[in-house]
């Protein structure tokens, strides 16, 4: 039986953790390492850091965050956003990342997957596919965090990425992302059936049952969640530090009005629900042990 992973995703803009809806309208939620440490201590199986504006501005502010995080967090860290070259990949791996997530750069140059997989190992290379369903019911891959159409069929692209040496595929249905309406089950299952490498479903969780659905019906090997955990963290711990630096803090000022579809929860609750439905995940002894120690 496969052991499913729950992977909090931390979207980062400059020094802040942000969250959008349909990959847009980014709101500042706090400082990324506070969230990262909390998720590590509370049962996260891995973490994903995404520099969500990097590919737009050609910058990457994640290296410092990763350096800081990898010293105190001992689960796999994936970094993505704005990584263009072998040197970019090398830099974030050196900073302490275990894997990189690539989208825009490899759509522009698919051979980069092959070169990177040969140099750093397939297991290091995660391909992120962000897609929107077209009128003809096919899914089209988008780049630049959901801003640019590519004309490329998402399912065919997943297969090609696997052939070129990708180790994992992260699938985001842009229409679902940030909405709390549930994952893009159809898109996830089409890709999960078509490739033999692990598939990470991303974007749309509003309840613990959505996570269960995308595993049972979508065939996901891992599930990436953001809002559903972040809003819980913010509700418990507030905004903490000062956010004058940059970003839209309206969300934090107003509370979570307009996000009623998202029932915030914890990793523990997500995993409890999975275990209850007979799905294997890293849950039992270690979490309990941690709570006692905590």
């Amino acid at each position: 039986m496969k052991t499913v992973r729950i992977i909090p995703r931390l979207d980062v803009k400059g020094p802040n953790l942000v969250k959008g809806i349909n990959l847009e309208g980014l709101r500042v939620l706090g400082k990324p390492w506070n969230f990262a440490r909390y998720y590590y201590e509370n049962g996260a199986d891995e973490l994903i850091f995404m520099d969500v504006v990097a590919s737009l501005y050609g910058r990457n502010s994640l290296v410092d965050i990763i350096k800081k995080t990898s010293k105190e967090i001992f689960i796999p860290l994936t970094v993505g956003g704005g990584l263009r070259t072998i040197d970019d990949i090398h830099n974030v791996l050196r900073a302490g990342a275990d894997k990189v997530s690539l989208n825009t750069a490899v759509i522009n140059n698919p051979e980069l997957i092959k070169i990177a997989a040969e140099k750093f190992g397939s297991s290091t290379i995660m391909i992120s596919i962000e897609a929107i369903k077209k009128n003809d019911n096919n899914y089209e891959a988008y780049t630049n965090n959901g801003r640019e159409r590519t004309g490329i069929d998402a399912i065919q692209w997943a297969k090609q990425a696997e052939k070129l040496g990708a180790g994992e595929i992260m699938v985001t249905s842009i229409d679902n992302e940030g909405t709390g309406r549930g994952f893009g089950i159809e898109l996830t299952s089409m890709i999960a059936k078509y490739v033999s490498i692990p598939v990470i479903a991303c974007g749309g969780a509003g309840t613990v049952d959505h996570v269960l659905d995308v595993i049972e019906k979508g065939g996901a090997d891992a599930v990436s969640v953001a809002s559903i955990l972040h809003y819980n963290f913010v509700a418990q711990y507030g905004m903490g530090d000062d956010f004058s630096a940059e970003g839209n803090i309206e969300f934090l000022k107003r509370g979570k009005a307009g996000f009623s579809k998202i029932q915030d929860t914890t990793i523990d609750e997500i995993k409890k629900n999975l275990v209850y439905h007979g799905i294997s995940c890293r849950f039992d002894e270690q979490n309990l042990e941690h709570q006692e120690a905590g």
Partner: peptide, 18 residues
């Protein structure tokens, strides 16, 4: 990942907690 007594396919690489 394709063979085995149960005939069930499993994913390679093996990624995750075990």
């Amino acid at each position: 990942g394709n063979t085995g007594s149960s005939g069930k396919r499993f994913k390679v690489p093996h990624v995750g907690w075990n």
